[in-house]
């Protein structure tokens, strides 16, 4: 029992993996649901990593779709032009996507992380739009027509069986593992202290700029990786996908799940990915629906209803 408690995360992750594989090969979940589940995993990566910037570091960054776009197009272009054995090509592409997203996050972050609150939000929002427009304007990215023929699971089944549900699951798991361990390390502690009180943190000998950049670029790295996975999952890319609305959607996942709450981000990512699919006839107005939902959540959250807490169910279901 002690072992079970200590390794709760690892064990539940393994159980979910086994169930996924079982369901998939037994055909209990069909292709339609598999596509949605794939998207869930990508959104988990995005939400959990953005939570590091917004929830733990306390900086309202609205440009994550920009980093994701950089990752997606980097990976798409690399796998098209780079001649490497297939087994190497995909890992190299994913890594390069992350690294390029980090580099661009440093370029945006060094000047803009000196700003606070609304100003940082505006500058990162602008950055996301700039990236989108650059991609639309360039030839190598396919411009406004989009990028077609990216190697992916459906078209290159033999040469590249990489980005399927299981791989996405592993990447999502790795992201959750890295971010949650990071927030418990000394660096994570310092990052939380910056959120709580920047002046006191600096007076306690913390190099604010370094840790802000660290958190911000880690977020960007995983957004870039998510972009790369998205590209190889979809096979086609359209610059319009990575617009302001998508950035906001990620923020909504973070806010809905709770600032600095990784489990919450996961739950919100699952919920908000399934929701529009289930309400597909309603999907045009889903942003409207999100706003209403967010307001309701905000209202209910501060009320401290016991049935909103995990402990409430733990006691009843598990008897502890």
């Amino acid at each position: 029992m002690a072992f079970y408690k200590k390794q709760f995360g690892l064990i539940s992750a393994a159980v979910i993996l086994i169930l996924l594989v079982l369901f998939r090969y037994l055909g209990i979940i069909d292709d339609y649901y598999i596509t949605i589940i794939d998207l869930v995993f990508i959104n988990i990566i995005l939400a959990v990593s953005l939570n590091l910037t917004i929830g733990f570091l306390g900086q309202l960054a609205l440009g994550n779709a920009g980093f994701m776009a950089i990752g997606a197009y980097t990976s798409a272009i690399l796998t098209t032009y780079l001649k490497l054995p297939p087994i190497l090509l995909f890992p190299v592409a994913v890594l390069c996507s992350g690294v390029l997203a980090v580099l661009s996050s440093l370029i945006v972050g060094i000047p803009s992380l000196r700003l606070k609150g609304d100003y940082l939000a505006i500058i990162t929002l602008g950055f996301g739009e700039i990236i989108k427009n650059i991609i639309t304007g360039l030839k190598i990215t396919g411009g406004a027509r989009g990028y077609k023929g990216i190697m992916n699971y459906n078209t290159d089944f033999e040469t590249n069986a990489y980005v399927n549900m299981i791989v996405l699951y592993l990447f999502a798991g790795l992201t959750v593992f890295v971010i949650s361990n990071f927030t418990k390390s000394r660096h994570g502690r310092v990052i939380k202290s910056i959120r709580d009180n920047e002046i006191a943190s600096e007076a306690s000998g913390v190099n604010i700029m370094y840790y802000k950049l660290l958190g911000f670029s880690m977020s960007a790295f995983f957004a870039g990786v998510a972009g790369s996975l998205y590209a190889h999952h979809n096979g086609i890319l359209a610059a319009n996908k990575f617009d302001f609305n998508y950035s906001i959607e990620m923020v909504i996942m973070v806010v809905l799940g709770g600032m600095g709450n990784i489990k919450g981000s996961i739950a919100a990512a699952i919920f908000l990915t399934f929701l529009p699919q289930l309400l597909s006839s309603f999907s045009d107005k889903r942003m409207l629906f999100y706003s209403i939902l967010l307001i309701i959540v905000m209202l209910v959250k501060n009320k401290n209803y016991p049935f909103l807490k995990i402990d409430f169910y733990k006691k009843r279901l598990l008897g502890r």
Partner: peptide, 12 residues
């Protein structure tokens, strides 16, 4: 650091 535990305040 108000939302952090007492010991974490010192650990920072």
């Amino acid at each position: 650091f108000k939302s952090m535990s007492v010991i974490d305040n010192v650990k920072v």
